[in-house]
Structure formats: C-alpha cells, structure tokens
Nucleic acid binder design. Structure first.
Length: 257
DNA sequence: CAGTCGTGGTA
DNA sequence: TTACCAAGACT
C-alpha cells in the first residue's frame, strides 16, 4: 500500500530508496499513525505531490481505528481510505491479497489500447468501453487473475512503453492490432503539456522545500525570499496552510505540521 | 469532466 | 534547452 501511494505519478527509481526508509521507520499502519503528519511529509522527501503523504498518514490512522491495524483486503474498504482511488484499491487487493480485480492503470490502458484497440495511446480518461474490454480479458480464476494484473502492468511498464516500445520482444507481437497496422502514430489533439514555470505548483513546492529542509520553525522573511510574486506567494502559503501541509507556529513563523 | 496538485530524469 | 513525462486522486 505504501509503495502504491508513492508510485502514483512518480517513477519507480525515485520511489525505491524513500520506500525502503519509510518501511524501516514505520513498519505497520499503527507506527505511521503514531507519528506526526509533519514527520510523514518530511520523510516523503522530494517524491512530489506531498498531499499524498498526508493521505497515507490519514489512511494509516483509519486502518488503525477501523481495521485493527491491518490493511483491508476488500475493494470497498480500501476505496474508502484517503488517497486510495479505483486503481490503488484494485492494485492492493490484487497484488497484496491475490483478489480478482481489473487493475487499470496507465500502463495497462496503453497495452489494451494498442493490442486490442490498434491505437498508440489511450484517451485522457477511462471510458466504459475500455473497462469492458479489460473486464472481458480478466481470467476467471482468482489466482490467475492476480497474476494477469501484475503481468499486464509489467508488460506496459517494461515492453509496451509509451516511447520506443520494444515490439521485437513483446509476447503479444503476433496478435497486437497496433503492430499489425504498422504502428500508426497517435492522431488527434496532442495531450496538453503540464505547465510548470511560474505556476502555483512550483511556488508551493519552493515554499514547502524550505520548511522541509529546515530544522525548526522558519521566519516569514525566509519564505518571502523564495518567491518574488507577492500575491501568488501569499495565495500559495495560504493554500499550504489550508491543506495542512504547513502550520503557523507563531505570529511570523511557519513549520511542517 | 477538466483542472489542480511536485519532482527530476530523459530525448 | 525545452518538452514531455511517471504504477492517480480529488474536486
């Protein structure tokens, strides 16, 4: 569960060392629940999307209170946890508990888009038809379904990659609709690139990095020195406070919660 | 449903 | 150097 939360939109290579340290420090949900959210945010390091650290902490608390400290195996119970959406609930139920679930992440979606749909990339959002295809392909046997879930994800992550897919070593090469069609390039509107420079996300990241790397409370002047656009800086600091990623420790000082 | 939310590697 | 991402969730 910890790795799945960390892997949401974050490359495996970056997650590995953080995950290892995290699990050594907080081996059980109860251990994490007993820690402060500030420690969780700091241990999250530079994985990005730090609200995931808060959600994981909140999930650990919920598991401790509602599930006797044991990560539930039921999809509905998992889905009810903070930071756990359809993908993560299915992944935990399937990978950790061997349950039969459609695990539809970006890798699997790409594999199905190519092998079945004959297109290079899936759409921006999951469609009903897409889920129907994935459901129809899922093996009936529970154990086999769990293996299928891992296998299709790995296929997408290691072979049927977004850029430079290794069709030469793909086990589906002889039945892939996209390959059979000559690997036609993605048509239609280009996927919107996410802006970064000058955005609130960059500003929030800059502010939080200062607090994360600081020993204790930080004076307002230090935060002000990290971002020149005053209205934006104030807006971002307010949103960080609102998200409970930052706490006000005095009239002019701030720190991790 | 589209917008928002971090970060650092890679072509 | 810039563009484009990488095992989503939430609003």
């Amino acid at each position: 569960m910890v790795s799945e939360l960390m892997l949401q939109q974050t490359p495996v290579n970056r997650v590995l060392p953080v995950h290892e340290a995290w699990m050594e420090r907080w081996p059980t949900p109860g251990d994490l629940a007993a820690a402060s959210t500030g420690d969780a945010v700091r241990a999250w390091g530079r994985l990005g999307y730090p609200r995931r650290a808060l959600r994981l902490h909140a999930a650990a608390t919920a598991i401790t209170e509602r599930h006797d400290g044991v990560v539930p195996a039921e999809y509905a119970d998992l889905l009810a946890l903070p930071g756990v959406g359809d993908y993560t609930a299915s992944a935990i139920a399937s990978f950790a508990h061997g349950r039969r679930h459609v695990v539809l992440d970006t890798n699997v979606r790409r594999v199905l888009a190519r092998a079945v749909g004959g297109t290079e990339f899936p759409g921006t959002s999951i469609t009903r038809a897409e889920r129907d295809v994935a459901t129809a392909l899922l093996p009936d046997d529970e154990a086999t379904a769990a293996t299928w879930a891992v296998a299709t994800m790995e296929l997408g992550a290691l072979v049927c990659t977004a850029a430079n897919p290794r069709c030469g070593s793909c086990p589906l090469a002889d039945r892939c609709a996209w390959l059979a069609a000559g690997r036609p390039a993605h048509d239609g509107p280009p996927r919107r690139a996410q802006a970064w420079a000058g955005t609130d996300r960059q500003c929030r990241g800059r502010l939080l990095a200062v607090l994360r790397d600081a020993e204790g409370p930080v004076h307002r002047s230090v935060l002000e020195a990290t971002w020149s656009d005053v209205p934006q800086r104030e807006r971002c600091l307010a949103s960080l406070l609102d998200d409970a990623l930052v706490a006000r420790t005095g009239p002019d000082t701030y720190a991790l919660p």
